[in-house]
């Protein structure tokens, strides 16, 4: 009885904190989605390092040879220095550096997306699911008015990343279920099928429980950030007016576009392509569906 009471209290406590729980869950899905593209990040960073190294080595070689031609060094010394410079970043160092830069890039992307993943929540009437959905839709529609790049890109980015996160988690769960069944009942014929169903169910449940809230919060947060940026712009203009004593000239379209509407360009250029790639490299989800036809 005491246990039952404890369970009820815990359930009630968690129920009252379910928005927090969903935020953490959604955030985890995004982190998993970003990491699914870690290999792509590493490759891209390596290519950049490779090109930069090639260009720098070439430039240093040419510069040193020019110094040699004007008599600063002997050609032998110039070659020697060029060789030493080129050896600073050899193949092993490039691999070492790109891996570390990839880790930094991944963590930075995680941190930059954290604000959206945590999102903003309005207090909603949760008396009925229909009412909640209606209010949520209205909020999202109004948040999407006069869209900027950030709000346009944040929804598909967060959706794709969290979906990949759900896929990664479901495939991991499938392994655990399959292993558990094969240990408990080694002769059971439908282990693969049951595990695949569990994996797909897990993916569906994770998508259902966390992704709508995540997208809702992310869009509202993006709207809030736009409003904050606009307010900051107005504030700076007011401060300018106070300082100079005369009204500042009207804002140019370019400045408005650059200061407010072009915010979140990095999401469009970096995070969204990364999210698409991270989904494309997860072929194991299709395989999970394929395994539904497996017979053991």
């Amino acid at each position: 009885m005491a246990l039952w009471r404890f369970y009820n209290r815990l359930a009630l406590f968690l129920g009252s904190r379910r928005r927090f729980v969903r935020r953490v869950g959604g955030m985890c899905l995004v982190f998993l989605g970003v990491h699914a593209a870690a290999g792509v990040i590493e490759d891209a960073v390596y290519q950049l390092v490779d090109v930069a190294d090639l260009v720098l080595d070439g430039l240093s070689h040419d510069a040193l040879m020019w110094f040699a031609s004007v008599g600063t060094f002997t050609p032998e010394e110039a070659r020697h220095h060029a060789e030493r410079f080129a050896a600073i970043l050899d193949l092993a160092e490039k691999g070492w550096l790109s891996l570390r830069l990839a880790l930094v890039a991944e963590v930075v992307i995680d941190l930059l997306l954290l604000d959206f993943a945590w999102g903003t929540r309005a207090v909603m009437n949760t008396a009925s699911i229909r009412q909640a959905l209606k209010e949520s839709t209205q909020e999202m529609v109004s948040a999407f008015k006069h869209p900027d790049i950030e709000r346009a890109a944040v929804l598909p980015t967060m959706f794709l990343l969290s979906l990949v996160g759900a896929v990664v988690a479901s495939v991991a769960l499938e392994s655990v279920v399959a292993d558990g069944i094969s240990r408990a009942a080694p002769k059971y014929e439908f282990t693969s099928l049951v595990a695949a169903v569990c994996g797909l169910l897990a993916c569906a449940v994770l998508t259902w429980r966390f992704i709508p809230d995540l997208l809702h919060g992310a869009l509202l947060r993006a709207r809030q950030r736009t409003d904050e940026a606009m307010a900051a712009l107005k504030e700076s203009r007011a401060a300018q007016e106070k300082r100079t004593g005369k009204p500042p000239p009207p804002l140019s379209v370019v400045r408005i576009l650059w200061t407010v509407r072009a915010r979140g360009l990095w999401i469009l250029v970096v995070a969204l392509p990364l999210a698409v790639t991270s989904l494309l490299v997860r072929t194991d989800f299709l395989a999970l569906i394929h395994r539904l036809g497996a017979d053991g």
Binding site: G15, R18, C28, D110, V168, A172
Partner: peptide
């Protein structure tokens, strides 16, 4: 009923937290 849903979400969240712990550099 809402509390039960919260319990379910909390369990899912724990699984996801473990996945982040075990499968990401974070």
């Amino acid at each position: 009923k809402l509390a039960r849903r919260g319990m379910f979400d909390a369990l899912l969240m724990l699984v996801l937290l473990y996945a982040v712990y075990a499968r990401t550099p974070l």
